[in-house]
Simulated scan of single mutants.
Amino acid sequence: MTPEELEAARDRTIEDVVAGGLRVLFCGINPGLMSGATGHHFARPGNRFWPVLHASGFTPRQLKPSEQRELLTYGLGITNVAARTTARADELSQEELREGGRILREKVRHHAPRWLAVVGVTAYRVAFDDRTAKVGPQERTIGATRIWVLPNPSGLNAHWSAAAMAEEFGRLRAAASRDDDVTPDPGTGTGTGTGTGSS
């Protein structure tokens, strides 16, 4: 990919990987230039999303960005807070992130994933107007969808090692696996455990 090809991808949008009723809908901040050029989420070689997704147990092998549609077979998907492709996330305005958060909430209400996982606490704080949010599960919900804030897997995020990131992703995976062990009780509408909760 030449610098000219990457620059030509600026301000593009790429399609979500999404379906109704997913276990986890991962939400990036916005697509980078490599993603805009290829149409694949988290496509930059230094981005740790795909390795961490595998290391945390969400996928049985490390997928390539070009295999992103395979995520749907595992009940996973990808969207973004802001749709516009940029070289760096800090090129987005606060207004873009807030508007992206509004659109994201509508998208989540429509597709109803069990969990929305926002990768990037700073973007989450702006998009959801929650200045004190920290990485981890949030009290806020969108309908029945629960929210988990994950560290940004960008290679520029030096605050988190790949191992620490995989551990946090793994906490979400364990929570999503516990959901798999709960089925509705037809008599009461509440959940009944059907498994051990282990993953």
Results as ranks from 00 to 15, higher is better:
1 M>F: 12
3 P>L: 08
7 E>T: 12
7 E>Q: 13
7 E>M: 10
7 E>W: 02
8 A>E: 15
12 R>Q: 14
13 T>G: 08
13 T>F: 11
16 D>E: 14
20 G>D: 15
21 G>L: 03
26 F>W: 13
30 N>F: 08
30 N>L: 10
34 M>R: 15
35 S>E: 15
37 A>V: 05
49 F>I: 09
52 V>H: 05
54 H>Y: 13
57 G>S: 07
57 G>N: 04
60 P>E: 13
62 Q>N: 03
66 S>N: 05
70 E>C: 06
71 L>Q: 02
74 Y>V: 01
76 L>H: 05
76 L>S: 07
77 G>T: 11
77 G>C: 11
81 V>E: 04
82 A>M: 07
84 R>H: 10
84 R>A: 15
90 D>G: 00
91 E>W: 09
91 E>Y: 09
92 L>N: 08
94 Q>I: 12
96 E>P: 03
100 G>Y: 10
104 L>F: 07
104 L>P: 01
107 K>M: 11
107 K>T: 13
114 R>S: 11
117 A>D: 03
118 V>C: 10
121 V>S: 07
123 A>T: 15
126 V>D: 06
127 A>C: 08
130 D>Y: 01
135 V>W: 00
135 V>D: 00
138 Q>D: 04
142 I>E: 04
142 I>F: 03
142 I>V: 13
149 V>E: 03
150 L>G: 04
150 L>N: 06
156 L>G: 14
156 L>N: 13
157 N>E: 10
158 A>N: 07
158 A>Q: 12
159 H>I: 02
160 W>D: 00
161 S>T: 15
162 A>G: 08
178 R>Y: 07
179 D>M: 02
183 T>F: 01
186 P>N: 05
190 T>G: 02
193 G>V: 06
